[in-house]
Simulated scan of single mutants.
Amino acid sequence: MDIVLRATAMFFIVFALLRLLGKRELGQMTPFEVVSLVVMGDLIQQGITHNDFSLTGATLAIGTFAFWTVTLGWLVYLFPRLKRSLEGEPRVIVRDGKLLADNLRRDRMTLSEVESEMRLAGIGSMQEVAWGILEPQGKISFIKKERSDEPAAQQDTGATA
């Protein structure tokens, strides 16, 4: 039972840590950060199981993490109001071709990061963007402005060739 209690505590500590890191950091991790997370996983395991290297101890720890993951997923499904606090919410970072600096600052993003994502989406200029939205998963969705430069219909003058 001790392993289950420690696994529960570590689950919520890791959950809070990942929420504090922010959306963008998780979406754009460097190789060093990935390795750090792997090392952190090993340290978490040691903290949860102490020196219990048994199959039972590992199964209890993994099962506890899985239980809380599924439980939080169900809570969000059953109580949609929890979604914002548990999963985050999309944030508009570009509106009508203009960066929203306050929202960028809130998620610790730079103009160059937004421009890089625009290029990956096939967008060459900020003026082409109607909406740029930072999704809870860390990706940026872009919605292009409607193009109104289609050729005007030629007027029929009634003359025949």
Rank of each mutant, 00 (worst) to 15 (best):
A66F: 12
D2C: 00
T69C: 07
K23R: 12
A153E: 13
S125T: 05
H50F: 05
I48F: 04
V94C: 04
R19I: 11
L100F: 04
V34C: 05
D2T: 15
E87Q: 15
M118V: 03
S116W: 05
G73E: 07
K98R: 12
A121E: 05
G138N: 07
P136E: 02
F53H: 14
E33L: 05
P90N: 06
G41Q: 09
P31F: 03
K98L: 04
L120Y: 12
G132D: 14
Q137I: 06
K139I: 00
D52W: 14
A9R: 02
L20S: 05
F11N: 08
R105Q: 11
S36C: 12
V39R: 07
P90V: 03
R105G: 02
E128L: 08
V92M: 12
L99I: 00
G41R: 03
M40T: 11
L5C: 05
R19M: 12
V35W: 08
M109K: 01
G138F: 12
N103Q: 12
G132W: 09
D52V: 11
A152L: 06
G97P: 05
Q137P: 00
G158E: 02
R91H: 00
L72P: 05
T30E: 06
I143M: 11
W131Q: 10
L100Q: 09
R147G: 04
T49Q: 10
T30P: 04
P136T: 10
R81K: 09
E25S: 14
S85H: 08
S148W: 05
T160L: 13
K83G: 13
K83H: 12
M109F: 09
E135W: 06
L21T: 08
Y77H: 08
